[in-house]
Amino acid sequence: MKQKNNSYIGIIVLFLLGALMPFILKRYHLNMLTEIIIFALYAVSYNLLLGYAGLLSFGHAMFFGLGAFVAAVAITHIQGLTLLSAVIISFATTVIAGFLIGSLLLRHKGSYFALLTLAFNALFYAVATKWHSVTGGDDGLSISRPELNLGFTSLSVSSVSSFYYLILVVVGATILFCWYFTHTAMGKTVLLMRENEERMKFLGYNTNISRLILFTFTGALAGLAGAFYTLHFQFVSISAISIDMTTAVLLMVFIGGTGTFWGPILGAFVYIVFQNYLSNITDRWPLFMGIIFVFMVLYVPGGLSHTIMTIRQWFSGRKDNHGDGPIKVEETSS
């Protein structure tokens, strides 16, 4: 009970802190924070897939990119479309796409699955590149952020701070839901499937359907992140659906660590900050990112979150065992 109250207080404190940011940060940093929150959702969605369900996909960018493009295309072609409608359209599209692609690919396991997701991502990329009339091809699509229609009133979210608040509330709540999700029946089901899928089957769980639902769900979350990415930059190009975007999410998740729910959020933070600074200093920043990635995988396989947890336990003098999967963390948190 005490634990439970603690987490509610924690959440409220976090949001209050977030709400104060526009008064503390400069526009430039606030803009970066907005980007971090959006990418945090993307990273969290990937972690649900990899860290929780144990599904290694190299095609997460297809959903991110699809969400991003559908939002841009919808805003370009539908006159007077409101911001949330655009987001809903792109969410719905990625749900359908996730379901169809998942039905096709989830028959295959392990590295076959990983390779097939890579192939599908390449296919999406090729379509986005060639279908110039819709996606703008290499030129990309520029949009203007629509107004936020709340039924009784319309709000402009064109300023950095108003858009930040929108993202803080909407994307923040989505991430919060993802956290909650890991405690729900479905969240536990996918987690336990990774632990012992056979036993789950004999306990009445349809694991194939569960995996499909999870794949669809995480795809849709990535699509949502993509839609907000479009709204944030007011521009989308084939980069959003390219393998680079998959690499980006892999990096975020590995930097942060798959072992905890919040690790990838930390990863997104580090990634975006690094990207912004490194890319100003050197045009070789992808190389540095690559080196960091290799270093993390080789020497800090649990990611930053693992390191932080270890240090924390060290200080508190408590020597309870800590595993690699999110399962262990679950135990301490619930």
Partner: peptide
């Protein structure tokens, strides 16, 4: 718990916590 909640139909619910 994993078996019990299955019996109670709480397998794929996105909103309810079995615990």
């Amino acid at each position: 718990l994993t078996g019990v909640r299955s019996r109670y139909g709480l397998r794929y619910n996105f909103f309810k916590r079995p615990d």
